[in-house]
Simulated assay, not measured.
Amino acid sequence: MTDVAKAAGVSQTTVSLILNNVAGARLSADTRQRVRQAADELGYDLVRRSVARPKVNNTIGFVADEIATDPWSAQALEAVHEQVWQNGLLVSASFTKGDADLEAAVREQMAGLPLRGLIFATILTRRVTDPGFSRRLPVVLLNCYVADNALPSVVPGELLGGYTATRHLIRAGHQRIAHIHGQSWMDASRDRLKGYRRALSEAEIPFDPELVRPGNWETRAGYEQTLALLALEDRPTAIFCANDLMAFGCYEALAENGLRVPDDMSVVGYDDREIARDLRPALTTVLLPHADMAAQATELLFDQIEPQNGRYPRLKVECPLVERSSVAPPRR
Rank of each mutant, 00 (worst) to 15 (best):
231 A>D: 14
317 V>Y: 06
221 A>W: 01
284 T>F: 00
59 T>R: 13
304 Q>A: 15
130 D>C: 06
241 C>I: 04
4 V>N: 10
257 N>G: 06
220 R>P: 00
271 D>M: 02
286 V>A: 03
187 D>T: 09
136 R>H: 14
100 A>Y: 03
133 F>C: 06
148 D>R: 11
96 T>Q: 06
158 E>C: 03
9 G>T: 01
89 L>E: 07
29 A>F: 07
68 A>N: 10
84 V>A: 15
57 N>K: 15
240 F>T: 08
231 A>T: 04
328 A>M: 14
232 L>W: 11
26 R>H: 12
100 A>W: 02
6 K>S: 07
278 D>P: 00
98 G>T: 07
4 V>H: 13
23 A>H: 13
78 E>R: 13
90 L>P: 00
200 L>S: 03
66 E>L: 09
159 L>M: 08
195 G>E: 05
278 D>M: 13
66 E>A: 07
312 Y>M: 02
306 E>R: 12
2 T>R: 15
164 T>P: 00
44 Y>M: 04
169 L>G: 04
189 S>G: 02
261 V>F: 04
309 N>H: 12
20 N>H: 07
248 F>Q: 08
230 L>M: 12
289 P>H: 08
122 T>N: 02
329 P>G: 14
109 Q>F: 10
32 R>F: 05
313 P>V: 00
264 D>W: 11
150 A>E: 12
217 W>I: 00
71 P>C: 01
68 A>L: 12
70 D>K: 09
237 T>N: 14
182 G>F: 08
328 A>G: 12
244 D>I: 08
71 P>T: 05
202 E>I: 05
7 A>K: 15
67 I>S: 04
24 G>C: 13
89 L>M: 15
130 D>N: 10
83 Q>F: 14
219 T>Q: 10
22 V>F: 14
96 T>L: 04
210 E>V: 11
243 N>D: 01
168 H>E: 02
324 R>F: 02
324 R>W: 02
16 S>L: 10
176 R>V: 11
76 A>M: 14
172 A>F: 05
196 Y>W: 06
92 S>V: 15
148 D>T: 07
44 Y>C: 03
17 L>K: 14
135 R>A: 15
269 G>I: 02
72 W>A: 09
315 L>Y: 13
18 I>R: 12
26 R>G: 08
319 C>F: 11
1 M>D: 12
62 F>H: 03
155 V>W: 05
183 Q>K: 10
298 T>H: 07
277 R>I: 01
287 L>D: 06
19 L>S: 11
90 L>M: 14
327 V>W: 01
10 V>T: 06
130 D>R: 07
224 E>R: 10
195 G>R: 06
259 L>K: 11
142 L>A: 03
42 L>F: 09
138 P>C: 15
102 L>Q: 11
54 P>E: 13
105 A>C: 11
320 P>A: 03
226 T>K: 07
79 A>E: 03
244 D>L: 01
249 G>S: 08
227 L>M: 04
321 L>Y: 05
135 R>D: 15
62 F>M: 03
165 A>Q: 05
28 S>G: 08
72 W>S: 06
234 D>E: 15
138 P>Y: 12
30 D>Q: 13
330 P>R: 02
97 K>N: 14
264 D>P: 13
72 W>T: 09
232 L>R: 08
68 A>K: 07
148 D>M: 13
325 S>V: 07
61 G>R: 05
319 C>A: 06
